[in-house]
Design a protein around this nucleic acid. Structure first.
Lengths: 325, 325
DNA sequence: TTGTAAGCGTTATCAA
DNA sequence: TTGATAACGCTTACAA
């Protein structure tokens, strides 16, 4: 491995001069600098990250933590983060699994964006207390070193339920997400509230779900088992809605005719299924970019970072028809 | 920040003893060790990654490089890698973009898995020459520090084309991937070879594509413009096949009746479209696990790592019918 | 303008 | 069994 020491030797200067030259410090003459840079290039010099980090206490790397790489990989979200980070000279790496949590306290990351229920609130607060900067996308958490950038779940769930009500549906279901999910809790609460405000004569039931296709299919089977007329179903994410499509295939029940479905997330496949799935849309890319932006503010400490909300909108689809045919 | 120096002070021992104790070195007494560990816990000590790396020249972190985060296509692959790496005490981070390439030469990674055309062969060979260990999933490259773990594209493309021929199709198309794509080149070559061996009376044409939905749709439009009877189409990936479904919607042409389509990759959506898409399947998870396994072998140097091939199989689907109705 | 030297937090060698 | 110390490669006062 070639170090600044080697460059110094070859160029006949001291290591500090080399360091200055490499970092573009104007103290060193144009001439010496040129010579040093040339030698560096010739020797194929690459700085050592560990040494630089040890000294400067920063890596210019941000970690985004996901629960798993599987399923919806949040492609656009991550791309949004990455582009924003790169603009500011940071690199983004994606991590998953408790084993990788060590990277934060060990100082390999300048900050982290959390979308991962495997991090407990307690653990995050611990890190924040140690001075690590965090953005959370999956919970509310109050700390000077943490900012939240959250989806407007309340608005989304309200749009979805109001859409079903507007179409005349009187028997409604909500299919929930997994136990610990923040999104699920928020969406469910808003759905419930919308029903309560929807006036009398509305039947409403909540079915357990898990944000995956299988649980959507299971919910569909429950719904048709007790079917006594058109129903409106708010699946708390699209994945489950797709599972519902699957389960109804080969039964006499039709989506958009007997079972009227709204999802959440506007995943790719929602536009390709028949009938097209009504869903709640938002810009993943923007979500990522905003999260990145706030984290950088937090790290660089200039203007104070602020909690942000990501707005959502309803995408109508043929998966929801009128209650009376 | 609390360092081993602080622990040493509090425990009344030297820093070397602390280091030994923390690393479970049996030289130090059970008793002293216990005391030191207790102090470490009390002070909330966390080792500093940069310092350790500087000294030991290893991070126990592997990077997987993707061209982009978009498209949910590599989830299982990454999960397969991660699980295998974790088993061996390594962490996996996912990186994207040329900016992040620095992590490899700067020594922040013990090795890398490459699925990213933004890395040129030249660049990879440079890294390999410097002693960095690499696994490539998207090209052939010969070097002692590089092993290939490649999809069996040749078998897959052959299966796809033979399937169309077996169903009696005489007019065939292949829709290719983007220029530089290794997968595209390999699949196309195998498709061509299969046609040549398929006997006389077969018309075959190659259409340009880009592995995305839009280019699949464009190919579909070209095909129906010159339509004169049932055609068999091998889309070099599923994404383009889905684009073809989309383009044919609202035309008199039906998939599986006029236009018979086979894809490649067996993405999720392939099972959900109507009619179900015939495609080439393989275990992404296994692909990732094998790549990880080979990289670790390469890094740890014990048994010699070897180039590997990932096997594929045909999944039949209603998107392909017989040529004569 | 350039050089000297201290120090970042570890590990590891050698002495005690 | 424990301690003193050099070294890893780099940045950065401070001195020359």
């Amino acid at each position: 491995m070639v170090s600044i020491k080697d460059i110094a030797k070859h160029a006949g200067v001291s290591i500090s001069t080399v360091s200055y030259a490499l970092n573009g410090n104007p103290k060193v003459t144009e001439e010496t600098s040129k010579r040093i840079l040339a030698v560096a290039k010739e020797l194929n010099y690459v700085p050592n990250a560990a040494a630089r980090t040890l000294k400067k206490r920063e890596t210019r790397i941000i970690g985004a933590f996901l629960t798993t790489f599987e399923g919806a990989f949040y492609g656009e979200l991550l791309q949004g983060m990455k582009e924003e980070m790169n603009k500011h000279g940071y690199d983004l790496v994606i991590c998953s699994g408790t084993q990788s949590h060590r990277m934060l306290p060990e100082g390999m990351l300048d900050g982290a964006i959390i979308l991962d229920r495997l991090f407990s609130d307690k653990e995050l607060l611990l890190h924040a207390n140690r001075g690590h900067k965090l953005v959370v996308l999956d919970r509310k958490l109050k700390h000077d070193n943490i900012v939240q950038v959250l989806l407007d779940n309340k608005a989304g769930a309200t749009f979805a339920m109001e859409y079903l009500l507007r179409r005349g549906h009187k028997k409604l279901y909500a299919v929930s997400g997994p136990e610990g999910s923040f999104d699920s809790v928020q969406r469910l609460a808003a759905a419930r509230q919308t029903v309560e405000r929807g006036g009398p004569g509305i039947r409403y039931e909540e079915l357990p779900g898990n944000f995956d296709k299988a649980s959507g299919a299971a919910a569909a089977r429950r719904i048709i088992a007790e079917y006594d007329g058109p129903v409106g179903v708010f699946c708390l994410n699209d994945e489950m809605a797709i599972g519902m499509y699957h389960a109804l295939k080969g039964t006499p029940f039709r989506i958009g005719e007997h079972v009227h479905v709204v999802g959440f997330d506007h995943i790719d496949i929602a536009d390709y299924v028949q009938p097209r799935l009504a869903t709640i849309d938002y810009s993943e890319r923007r979500w990522g970019a905003v999260a990145a932006e706030q984290l950088i503010k937090l790290i660089e400490g200039g203007s104070s970072a602020e909690h942000e909300r990501i707005y959502v909108s309803l995408v109508e689809g043929d998966s929801v028809g009128r209650a009376n045919g």
